[in-house]
Design a protein around this nucleic acid. Sequence first.
DNA 1: GCCTCACTCCTACAAATGTATGTTTTTATA
DNA 2: TATAAAAACATACATTTGTAGGAGTGAGGC
Lengths: 127, 127
Amino acid sequence: MKKLVRLPEAELSVMRAVWRLEAPVPTGAIRSRLERERPWNLSALQTLLSRLAERGYLSVGKEGRQNVYTPLVSEGEYLAFENAPFLEGRGLPGLVTALYDSRSIGREDLEELRAFLDEAMGKEGGT
Amino acid sequence: MKKLVRLPEAELSVMRAVWRLEAPVPTGAIRSRLERERPWNLSALQTLLSRLAERGYLSVGKEGRQNVYTPLVSEGEYLAFENAPFLEGRGLPGLVTALYDSRSIGREDLEELRAFLDEAMGKEGGT
DNA sequence: GCCTCACTCCTACAAATGTATGTTTTTATA
DNA sequence: TATAAAAACATACATTTGTAGGAGTGAGGC
């Protein structure tokens, strides 16, 4: 398991964009994906991309003369990493409970989740 | 709903400690709670606490001579806030799937979660 | 061939964050 | 009562993060 580091806000936004695009992703695609949310100056974005590469979150390749980026850390891995302190203390049910209690998710979400689990695991729940 | 801001690493560790203690929490209690993980210099910790108060994450009171802190944002609210971009895109099942696919949680965790949901909502799941 | 576009890469710098020192005030106590 | 322990509070400063400017370079249009 890679040694992850908590990403600063701006870099995390960039990663989220990359995760949602088809790798390898050219800079321009990332830029347009983010233009509503964070209309960065091109150089600013490039700085963030290289920092992400330094940190081992992205690999950089070339497609012609353009840089293309591929995530080296999946969104799930990162999510697990960020939520680890909570998950360790209280487990997945604890997480769901906390979200529910703070009204961040509702009863429908729980229903949906249960249906999803039943579907994914089969109703038997064998080992 | 308060306007939350993503906390920097150090401040977040402090919040996690506060969340796990009984409010209102005196500085010393936070300090000892964190001494393994982040053995901060007392002033360093005090700086972080006042920054958290400025940001509206903690309220500060006095208990005799000492400062005592009370969270103004619950752990669940914060969790929801941090995971919001993911949850909006993919919902709770998506989150669980991402964790599972990245092997951050295992099949037992899913079993446990399902059992928990069955318990919490009743097996019928009617609305 | 020359210009413009679209990028890359290097450099810079203000603001935010992480960590510590020094000073003062309390309270407890040898 | 002099001394030490505990903590507040102000201040400082190195490092990291956020954002941008500018120089260089291949590609396509004219």
